[in-house]
């Protein structure tokens, strides 16, 4: 069934989401190291303005380890309320790892350890008494590859509300599904076939379905891990519009490979390099007048 959804133009990029990010980053980091060695630039700290006043999420001195290997080095960053923050950088730089540590998705990877202070509205994310279940309902996530469940479109969106017991009546659930699909801009396309399998949609529609699924549990933050990397340009444009609309109600952190995308959708941009946060600034500043020479080298395409 999945074969139907991938049109020729939507063939995925070379880099696939790997089941084990640890080995992926290990391999790629060494490649990046080799390239970075040519530039001979030492990253000492973060330049620019990593902090902001009205922070929804705030991270201080975050270190992430996969077993022995350290994937994130001492990263501090704020993500402001109703703001879109883009995270860019060469592959293997740790931006996805960092993103996954924001809603503790890294817990599912054996041997992964997160240190530092991470708070959501001032509450610790990694506190000893924190329950990941409501946490993940508050911090939703959209993945690189569209991953609708092999269920109907309706059931895909209704899944979250059902397991959390958000809707008390069937009518309420219907309403949540409709609202979520509307917000994800998918309602008009699928309203007549809600009982058809979600895997039968096109790639772009699947990704919007995943976004609808995520917003159906009314999250406060949505994390997006390269949400358009498996999509064709038209579907990508549609998602980017959607992200801009969603900003009204949600705080969004998006990892992207595409600098153009970061420039189009985000207010602030963070540049990661070899597990370190090199520079954070207003998006415009990063792309027009970067402070750090590595950032400049990256956005001008000298590596990446």
């Amino acid at each position: 069934m999945t074969t139907m959804t991938l049109n020729a133009g939507e063939a995925g990029p070379a880099e696939d989401q790997t089941a084990n990010p640890a080995s992926e980053s290990a391999v790629e980091q060494s490649a990046v190291k080799a390239r970075a060695a040519n530039t001979n630039i030492e990253v000492t700290g973060t330049v620019g303005s990593p902090f902001c006043d009205d922070a929804k999420l705030s991270m201080r001195n975050v270190n992430v380890f996969y077993g022995e290997a350290q994937a994130i080095h001492d990263v501090s960053l704020d993500i402001g309320r109703n703001q879109v923050v883009a995270m860019i950088g060469p592959s293997g730089c740790g931006k996805s790892t960092f993103l996954r540590s924001l809603n503790r998705m890294n817990d599912t990877i054996e041997g992964c350890r997160v240190e530092g202070e991470l708070t959501l509205d001032g509450e610790a994310i990694y506190g000893p008494k924190v329950d990941v279940v409501p946490l993940r309902a508050r911090v939703g996530m959209v993945f690189q590859k569209p991953n609708p469940f092999p269920k109907s479109i309706y059931d895909n969106v209704a899944y979250g509300p059902k397991i959390h017991g958000i809707a008390s009546r069937r009518a309420e659930l219907d309403e949540i599904v409709e609202n979520s699909l509307r917000r994800a801009g998918l309602w008009n396309e699928v309203k007549d076939r809600l009982d058809k399998p979600g895997t039968g949609l096109s790639g772009g529609q699947q990704q919007r379905l995943c976004i609808a699924r995520a917003i159906a549990v009314s999250p406060e933050v949505i994390l997006m891990d390269e949400p358009c990397s498996a999509l064709d340009p038209i579907a990508t444009a549609r998602i980017e519009e959607l992200i801009d609309e969603l900003r009204q109600n949600y705080t969004i952190a998006i990892v992207t490979h595409s600098m153009q995308q970061a420039a189009r959708v985000s207010q602030r941009t963070a540049y990661f390099h070899l597990g370190k946060l090199v520079e954070v600034n207003d998006t415009e500043t990063v792309f027009t007048n970067p402070e750090h020479e590595l950032t400049e080298a990256y956005i001008t395409g000298r590596f990446g």
Binding site: A137, F143, K145, N147, P150, Y159
Partner: peptide
């Protein structure tokens, strides 16, 4: 069953058993 399906369910705040019972087993 692809890991991405589990990630999808866990990312919505499912417990592990909900992920298994409602997503992995049906798949």
């Amino acid at each position: 069953v692809p890991q991405s399906l589990r990630d999808g369910a866990l990312g919505l705040g499912s417990t592990k058993s909900e992920t298994v019972r409602k997503v992995v087993i049906p798949a």
